[in-house]
Design a protein around this nucleic acid. Structure first.
Lengths: 259, 259
DNA sequence: ACTGGAGTATCGCTGTGCGATACAGTTGTA
DNA sequence: TACAACTGTATCGCACAGCGATACTCCAGT
């Protein structure tokens, strides 16, 4: 029943100006610097005048600001208000937060929650460990499902066909030399995960990192999110890490899943 | 030169559909539960059909989702993508993040960064202490400038007239019995802050909490944000807390301000 | 003085988004 | 069962809002 975003559909109920405005905002996903009017125009494919009007509007609403040095446009502070709304109103996030805090207290390593969105996992909250390195501490950051422990835990909860679809549709680029990209290896990993009840990932995204992940299920027993505990291989052997933390992780995931 | 959002202005470059869509999204700021079509319609003052079309559009773009139980509309995951863009592209946030991590390592108490937005401070990043209580750990959360240490630090950097304007325009409701709301007392506090170079807040927002704050300045020496170190009065006397942490806090703020 | 690049403004035509209205499923209750 | 009171969805013309073309104003660097 969710409306489709297909192109050549006869959807007369689609408000195009809104989509165009969101396109403008979304352009910043691709870049890491302020953009000029022209740049936005060419990147979005919208006309200069149009972009000017859209920017004017978004700017008066606070969703776009000028760069401090007035060298271009950047996303505005008001966007944070909306992400807060998402977090406040998302039942999984709300339910998980206190449990994650408790888990964090018990394990004293990095603990986080990410929400499943088709091919990716989006970090919704992250509780740092004592000595956090510079890994992007930002929420909203997303990683591919296929190569993180939480992703495997989620895939393990799906029908094989659905999991396969996700794996094959994923663009499986390696983050580190250890990143699993082979389809067979991944399927095997998922099988292991299904038996263990949680997933272990060694240096899949960051060198020297070990992470274990478990899936969060909704009432219909469908995975919707995942939680992780992550630590450093310089401090732990994989065996010790999982022996110590996996039971706590699984217990926490179960508690959150109980709705 | 920032466009004004006045009502009866002759702004023919303002795209109203966008504003309406954002109104719909913003409606969730006021509530803490899923909303129905009708509710959104009456809360925004927009017609039912219109809201339906806007929701359809926002939904196909991922900015609105249906509640898991299909009981209403809620903000969608895609909003997080945009808040990430804001964080990634904001020079203050980028500059501050590593320094805050270091500061956090030194003080082992809660450390956070908030961005100044007229009457409020919006949390942009927050590094938890070892035993974090359930205080909203979410970014995007905002507090009034008039009653937090970082706010005082910012006000202390402004011309007296501007600071006064902010104080008087603020809706000065008390969060705790200790919250300062009296104009005279606040001005005095700001004077103290200006001399000390940082601000100390005792139980202004949360009972039992002590926080110290310092302002972040841009190239023009204008305040744009603030950083805090916050701890519990059950573990610290105000004197010990400030003696230990204020120098580090001020040093960090200075480092971030150097652009 | 020129050129190329910023952002801003103007102004008709057209197409798009508005409102009214009607339809279709759920839930609760008389 | 029928009905009422809700949900969300679809249709369809008219009016006006938003588009594109064009032109203007600054500013930086030749």
């Amino acid at each position: 029943m969710p409306p489709k975003d297909s192109e050549t559909e006869k959807d007369g109920l689609f408000v195009q100006s809104i989509a165009r405005a969101m396109d403008v905002l979304s352009i910043f996903h691709q870049v890491d610097r302020p953009l000029s009017l022209q740049e936005i125009s060419s990147l979005t494919g919208l006309g200069r005048s149009n972009v000017q009007r859209i920017l004017f509007t978004l700017r008066s609403l606070g969703y776009i600001t000028r760069d401090p040095d007035d060298r271009g446009y950047v996303p505005g502070l008001r966007l944070l208000d909306h992400s807060l709304d998402f977090l406040r109103l998302n039942p999984v996030v709300v339910k998980a937060t206190p449990i994650l805090l408790e888990l964090r207290r018990a394990v004293r390593e990095r603990v986080d929650l990410s929400i499943w969105d088709d091919l990716r996992l989006v970090y919704a909250s992250r509780l740092q460990s004592k000595r956090e390195i510079l890994t992007s501490t930002f929420i909203g950051y997303s990683v591919p499902v296929f190569c993180v422990s939480g992703g495997w835990a989620i895939l393990a909860q799906l029908e094989e066909a659905e999991a396969d679809s996700i794996l094959t549709r994923s663009y499986r680029a390696a983050f580190t030399p250890k990143t699993l990209t082979d389809l067979g290896a991944l399927k095997e990993k998922i099988r292991e995960t299904r038996e263990a009840g949680y997933a272990t990932a060694l240096e899949q995204v960051l060198p020297g990192e070990i992470a274990i992940g478990a899936a969060i299920l909704d009432q219909a027993r469908r995975p919707v999110a995942a939680i992780h505990v992550a630590g450093s291989l310089s401090e732990w052997t994989p065996e010790d890490f999982t022996r110590q933390f996996a039971p706590l992780l699984v217990q926490a995931a179960r508690t959150i899943s109980r709705v």
